[in-house]
């Protein structure tokens, strides 16, 4: 049960039940759809940029507890950050969920994102945890309107 409790931590259960920033954004700068064909998770991520800053993030869609909580925590975490800061956060988060070693103790900077540490024990769930992040990344770095984890 312990690995399971590590996976479904309180923060994740809370954000799954009551996702933050879970709404459509009418005046978004970029709207990108993220899709995991393996399990059917599908989210639309809305981002409003102000110059180089992520002014606002919201999302809509449906999927498992891990993917929904991840999108919710992400939306709160990157709001007000610069694109570069958001990308750096994604890089550290990616290390966390894939279980990469952390010699520089970057993981300490993650705040609530650290709740996803248990994901690394469940390789099949890594894609769930990073779906929203991939979608956000596409919104920041490309012109694509859809991303897929496959």
């Amino acid at each position: 049960m312990s690995a399971l409790r590590e996976l479904y931590q309180e923060v994740i259960l809370d954000h799954n039940k009551s996702p933050r920033n879970f709404r459509k954004m009418e005046d978004a700068t970029r709207t990108v759809e993220g899709y995991n064909p393996l399990c059917g998770d599908r989210y639309t991520v809305y981002v409003k940029f102000e110059d180089d800053m992520v002014k606002d993030v919201s999302f809509e869609g449906a999927g498992c507890a891990i993917s929904k909580a991840s999108a919710s925590v992400m939306s709160a975490a990157v709001k007000g950050k610069t694109k570069a800061e958001a990308e750096a956060l994604f890089a550290v988060f990616h290390k966390l969920v894939t279980g990469e070693p952390d010699p520089t103790q970057e993981l300490d900077t993650l705040g609530k994102l650290a709740a996803f540490s248990g994901v690394s024990e469940f390789p099949a769930r890594v894609k769930c945890a990073i779906l929203a992040w991939h979608t956000l990344y596409a919104a920041m770095e490309s012109n694509e309107e859809k991303v897929s984890t496959e």
Binding site: A3, L4, Y8, C64, K68, C128
Partner: peptide
């Protein structure tokens, strides 16, 4: 209210 993917993971446990 529960996504099948979460069902699968918890049952696998």
């Amino acid at each position: 209210g529960i996504h099948p993917h979460d069902i699968g993971t918890i049952l696998d446990d």
